[in-house]
Design a binder for these strands. Structure first.
Lengths: 348, 348
DNA sequence: TTGAAAGCGTTACCAA
DNA sequence: TTGGTAACGCTTTCAA
């Protein structure tokens, strides 16, 4: 019924072994023979059987990419960058790799499930993106999985999340703490003192680091008026909106809002608008990530631009063994402060 | 080195066949035996070999999801919805399916490559999302691929793209023509006559259908003043910005802009702002898709809300055989006109 | 440079 | 309800 290697071999008058060698291109084959094989492949419309190939070779062409939320452009951009790097020359079967984008939804269980699934598929590599969950048991479980994956020959790269001790997973991550510090320092320099902070979910590395940066900046400046203006939520607009409304209720006098990321910042802007406040005339808003649309959406937004695409691409290349891993297995990439319109000093 | 089914069987004192049956849960096994097997699995930390399983069963747990641009929330939302439907009970090996999100970037070649790759993986199902490319040769090539996939037992579902004749691919698609018609009709009813149209890429079904709707509305109203105000581009902000600037250059008197989708509409808003025009006081803007952020980003935007998530979820269920295919293999889902602030009549 | 053949780890059929 | 055992289609030594 379906065409197999043997069929191609028969038609090309060679052995199956030869066909395999031609297809994988990793072994010398006489030019004439290769031609004949390729012709047969074409004529029979042969498509390699991936599972059989993976079984025999003990590795597949699959590369897993774990993201927290595929509907969030932040992760879409990273997934896209990884994907464009993993296809390429080298590797078996025409060098075509398939990215398996796994949407964990930020759930620890699903994260582990997906890692198991990828282990089951004998994935060639796995890239984990975004902040990690800081629950101790979960961290241990993930570490165990990553160790097992490595042992099985799967390359593991972390992108935007801190290294996992006890594993040989390479990590290229962002300087969230530094970015958070810069953002708040910038607002302070304009004279803001009552600064609301809409943080991400608790027990998330990104959340903690960014918030730590914020607090460092406040402490450095000796400002204490903002200490109670922190609300936690998820990384979405609804949170930004609700949290900002809550902040305004408790502190109608705040003059600036720092959001966990740009998506949240958009929600914050919506809440401010609903409260009859203008951005940035009445309240300045700062975000994080600099998603492509944020500039158009809220021209006044000040943000820290993380090199998402470049960093994810790099993670992809490392996962493919096409770029060397950073010294010590970790590299921390800084973000760039983008000051747009929301640099207004506090309203009188 | 790595733990296999046989190891589990030995430890549980049963045959490999029995272990397989327990794991797949699709065959009666004595409760006591099952317990013993599960215990052994746990103790050995056994993980099924996916490729081997797929080879033997002649089908894998992989489900392909083709998207044009994974960084675009439009597709992220659909991918997310499909993914949440394909995991679930039934199916082999614990019922865990892996969604393979393939980012075609709108390229015909990559679309075909990915279909081949999924065919190679013996994917259980494939969901193609977003508008289709209308090049004749490419349509034929895709049809061929889809036919071959079906023959191999892969279920094929189209979501947001029109049916492909000659295949048994099921299609749940959007009423793009109707939506386009409504949008323009709405603007016309407000008195607008010079309406710019920023269309998507040519030779794309979504582009054509939405534009056709726009033209129908104009024709129905006997309006000819907008006939030359159409510019084509890609589905991104940059296009929206550039195309709008171009439209403004040729027609500074236009009072409304219809964009191919919300992302483009955001770019259009940016261009208007740069031209010193306000939305909607000076120029009304209409979009398509109603992405979650558009309301926050541009409160004035009028749009046609497509039930992205629901429709994609349905496509996922159909792909999994958990919901019946629509009558005749095609269902066209309408969009809802959301009128926000951009309902201003043309400026005097 | 090519061929023969032994796996790779499951599944599923046939018996028991 | 369980076991034995051929496939499944490819890769990869080992020989030639």
């Amino acid at each position: 019924m379906t065409v197999t290697l043997a069929d191609v071999a028969a038609r090309a008058q060679v052995s199956p072994a030869t066909v395999s060698r031609v297809l994988n291109g990793n072994y010398p084959v006489a030019a004439a023979t290769r031609e004949r094989v390729l012709k047969a492949v074409d004529e029979l419309d042969y498509v390699l059987n991936g599972p059989a190939s993976a079984l025999a070779a003990a590795t597949s062409d699959l590369v897993g990419v774990l993201v927290n939320d595929i509907a969030d452009p932040f992760f879409g951009i990273m997934a896209s960058a990884v994907q464009s790097e993993i296809v390429g020359p080298g590797g078996r079967a025409g060098g075509e790799r398939l990215a398996v984008v796994c949407n964990t939804g930020g759930s620890p269980e699903r994260e582990l499930t997906y890692l198991t699934l990828l282990q089951r598929q004998r994935a060639a590599a796995v890239v984990l993106t975004g902040g990690a969950i800081e629950d101790e048991a979960h961290v241990a479980a993930v570490a165990g999985k990553l160790r097992r994956l490595s042992e099985a020959g799967t390359r593991v790269v972390l992108c935007g999340r801190p290294p996992v001790p006890g594993t040989d997973a390479v990590s290229v991550t962002f300087d969230n703490r530094g970015g958070g510090r810069e953002l708040t320092r910038h607002l302070l320099s304009l004279g803001h003192r009552r600064i609301g902070y809409v943080a991400g979910p608790e027990e998330r590395t990104t959340t903690r680091h960014r918030l730590e940066g914020h607090r460092e900046a406040l402490a450095d400046a000796g400002v204490t008026e903002s200490d109670d203006l922190v609300v936690h939520g998820t990384y979405d607009r609804a949170t930004g909106r609700a949290a900002t409304a809550e902040l305004l209720r408790g502190a109608p006098d705040l003059t600036a809002i720092v959001a966990a990321n740009d998506t949240v910042a958009l929600g914050a802007c919506a809440a401010l608008r609903e409260a009859g406040l203008r951005v940035p005339e009445d309240v300045s808003v700062a975000g994080f990530d600099d998603l492509p649309f944020s500039a158009d959406a809220v021209p006044a937004l000040t943000t820290v631009r993380l090199p998402l695409s470049d960093t994810a691409a790099r993670a992809g290349r490392i996962a493919m063994g096409r770029e060397e891993a950073p010294e010590g297995g970790v590299d921390v990439v800084g973000g760039e402060l983008i000051v747009r319109g929301s640099t207004a000093p506090p309203r009188a």
